[in-house]
Design a protein around this nucleic acid. Sequence first.
DNA 1: GCAAAATGCAACCTAATGGTTGCGCAACCC
DNA 2: GGGTTGCGCAACCATTAGGTTGCATTTTGC
Lengths: 107, 107
Amino acid sequence: MTAAEREQAVFTALADPTRRAVLRSIASGEAATATELAARLPVTRQAVAKHLALLEQARLVDPERVGRETRFQATPAPLEDAIAWMTAVGDQWDDRLAALARTVAED
Amino acid sequence: MTAAEREQAVFTALADPTRRAVLRSIASGEAATATELAARLPVTRQAVAKHLALLEQARLVDPERVGRETRFQATPAPLEDAIAWMTAVGDQWDDRLAALARTVAED
DNA sequence: GCAAAATGCAACCTAATGGTTGCGCAACCC
DNA sequence: GGGTTGCGCAACCATTAGGTTGCATTTTGC
């Protein structure tokens, strides 16, 4: 998977509110299963499972099979990429502001 | 618009690659119009206009009508909200790691 | 005044998305 | 061994999203 694809996967994963709730839940509590998560959310287990699959694709979550259940851990490292993208855009904007300020100062 | 709605708007706005390209373009260059942006992108002006409308809804961009054209400026402040969400999730994860490390240390 | 350029609005199309139900299979427990 | 629990897969459904074409409107420039 290329860097661009990973970036896209992360932003896509974060776009859905249910998915953010799932990720937040896993990150805050202990590793959880799809069934446990679905109990706290207004959707079915299968819907949660789909969201987990997407989060796993974005490497934001890591499944571990233990007995008959699959527990998911949060692996938020890819969030760094997204944060980097945003700060880069923000900095570009700041640079333009700074350049504009210099131009004004020169007048 | 509530905080949750603003958060949702930002994450939604960032989810589409064309929209990210538009935002990056506006943030890096000087304020641009839909027509100018469309010239550099593989989509029509109307598609760009829709993306700009969505970015504006997320307060990531600000339109200014000058004569017959509408120039858009980047206003990346809302990105802070998204970054805050991500760092919060990441920190929760770090806290769990730290707690786990303490538990292990106590053994 | 009139042609050209830029925008905005509306209708429409297609594919993707988020969700559901139903079912088969593996693992646990008594 | 047999019931129960948890998962995964597949089919299906409704809505949204991204994109297009077409047209009417405003502003500019000669």
